[in-house]
Design a protein around this nucleic acid. Structure first.
Lengths: 378, 378
DNA sequence: GCGAATTTAGCAACAGCGTTGCGTAATAGG
DNA sequence: CCTATTACGCAACGCTGTTGCTAAATTCGC
């Protein structure tokens, strides 16, 4: 029941974010564009545009002459007005990217992480990496924050790493707090796949309401965007897609069950049978489509991208043939447009989203127990 | 990009709905309860309560003496101030229920539908049924609308039945419009399983953020509530859970694939092996948990409830043993508390939700193409 | 050329929301 | 009977987006 209360400042942020969303999607736009897209009155849009211009987030980019009448002022996002750092923490590497307000990736660096890295190691590596990116520039003042995409399980609502698979030293680490203190910047912590799907959604705009990012990279995971928002699940643990059973009598998986997608896929890969591995993954993808009715599927991950076209073709084929009523149900199947940077870039975009995106009225905060009132005795 | 514009009337409706949600959850409450639960200021709550009282939706129910100080006024929902009709349209039956503002089911009637019923047949059956329920009462004036839960595929956003499985005469029928015209009441059309999970969410309150309703009744389907909202998917077709492959080399399913959950389950049922059927379903449920990280699983459907305890135990057992780190991940597994009325009751609650629930800022309307502005020539 | 039509943009007054400040009512305890 | 305490609402306020209307910049027709 702990929903954010809706006051007038919410209106401000919300409508402002609508205009920013138009700016990100269209690159150049004018007042009437925003009016059509949002339903706000022209006067309201004028006010919002004035505020955004004052903040330096958008700027005029000339005029358009639609024929008769006074020319319309054309606006555009100012990409370099704000930046965010994105970090992808994998088991042995730390990838850092710099993303601007328009979603463009500017820097991308990879540094190794020691096999048994501790929170302190990571914090130092983050600081060093961020300093290297911002050194010699006055970019620091325009940094909105740092997004961290990491393997789970973790607790997004509290910024806690609960038990990163395969990493000792990472049990109930309050990484968000630690990093905020260590870096002096707002930090957003999320599961890697969720960050990844955010990146794809940014690039594709508002049409990306129901979509999944399929990630094959030392395991199989999925990030979801459902109903226009990231889906993380009750414990930020959604996306353990590799551990869904597709073969009841299949080989035993590390998770204890038999015939998980991941282990069946692994067997095919180990046998060198990439086409079969791709077909297995495709079965899993169609399972997702049947369950969730997604409009877009994005394929990513180092192990997949190594045979990108084989996988893409196999999934596309399965989607076309195995889902009934294909005429109006067929989702798009694409490869990640950001390659190895997806996770890190998405983490950065989440930070920008938090500050300049559509505010969320119902955050995942634990619901309050509503206490019952009993009428007292006379 | 077509999100509803946020104006001040949105604030009004939103905060009003927050208070109503507290009323539904707590049954009796006072001003301070709402303040704690919503974060609104006491003064704002006073204003909202005054409005709701004027509308007859809540009323004072005495006072509570917390010890020292002026006693607090205790409020309660007025259950009989508003009603909604819920309809569950199955292949051969029409079930109608009357639900009040508190979510209590008052009437429940089942009437047969001809094997090949047409839209006209259904409309007439609805009218006759609703008239029978409201006859002789002045309940009609307090009817908020009619909710229809139906088998898919359908288009929730446009109120269209696209191709109801196994029903001729049902291709692209604009049922919502037709029914609104025929009944003279607002109508809400949704997929059966989605209506069902709404009913469960109403009964369980705000904690029901990520949950699924598993429905076994001439096929296997699932309704989802994710992130506190119903998940319908890109084409209102989410929940075709029975057609996910769990056995790569399994028997051929009617959908064309091999080893779908539904066909594997069916084989076990046909063999009279209910425990095995239950175990198969449990595998599917665990798959869902891995994928979506749900906190609650509700079991329903005539075929399941016939052996309710076998299924519940099997699913509960699988959830406990097959999902790793069971300590903080274990979801609750329950049987539907509304029995055969779930779908119809949920459909009715959706109508009440639409009118008195938390407004949705991002409806599933098709996103507008944002046209790009080009700076005109000098 | 020059006025009329047309389109864009903004100023000013307004209505409605939650918030703040403060006064008032109702109780228990001394 | 007074005081501390708690509940509650009136009034003024600040902030939204909205409405009404005026000004500016352009094309088109004569």
């Amino acid at each position: 029941m702990t929903r954010t209360t809706a006051d007038v400042t919410f209106l401000r942020g919300y409508n402002q974010a609508l205009v920013m969303a138009v700016g990100r999607t269209a690159r150049t736009f004018e007042r009437s564009t925003v009016v059509d897209a949002t339903g706000l009155t022209p006067q309201a849009v004028s006010k919002v545009i004035a505020r955004l211009t004052a903040d330096g987030l958008i700027r005029s980019a000339g005029v358009r002459r639609p024929g008769i009448g006074k020319p319309a002022v054309v606006y555009e996002l100012v990409p370099d007005s704000r930046y965010a750092i994105g970090a992808h923490v994998a088991r042995r590497t730390l990838r850092l990217v710099l993303v601007d307000l328009a979603g463009t990736v500017h820097h991308s660096t990879v540094s190794p992480l020691a096999g048994d890295f501790t929170p302190e190691h990571l914090l130092d590596a983050l600081r060093v990496g961020i300093d290297a990116i911002t050194a010699g520039t006055e970019l620091r003042s325009r940094l909105t924050g740092v997004g961290i995409g990491m393997i789970g399980p973790l607790d997004h609502a509290h910024g806690l790493v609960r038990d990163a698979h395969g990493l000792r030293h990472w049990h109930d680490v309050p990484l968000r707090e630690l990093a905020e203190a260590h870096l002096g910047l707002p930090v957003h912590l999320d599961k890697d796949v969720t960050a990844g799907i955010t990146a794809e959604a940014w690039r594709h705009g508002a049409t990306f309401g129901d979509a999944a990012l399929i990630m094959v990279e030392s395991g199989i995971g999925a990030g979801f965007r459902l109903g226009g928002a990231a889906h993380r699940g009750a414990h930020t643990n959604a996306g353990e897609f590799g551990h869904t059973v597709v073969d009841l009598d299949g080989p035993r998986c590390v998770c204890g069950r038999h015939g998980c997608l991941e282990v069946v896929h692994l067997r095919a890969t180990e046998a060198g049978d990439v086409p079969r591995a791709a077909r297995v993954l495709a079965v899993g993808v169609v399972n997702l489509l049947q369950t969730l009715d997604l409009a877009h599927v994005v394929l990513a991950g180092a192990d997949l991208l190594r045979h990108a076209e084989v996988y893409r073709a196999a999934v596309e084929r399965a989607v076309r043939t195995d889902v009934p009523r294909a005429d109006w149900l067929t989702p798009t199947v694409t490869l990640s447009s950001l390659g190895a940077d997806v996770i890190a870039a998405g983490a950065a975009m989440q930070v920008l989203d938090q500050r300049y995106g559509i505010p969320d009225l119902a955050p995942g905060a634990p619901p309050t127990i509503v206490r019952q009132s009993v009428v007292g005795a006379r």
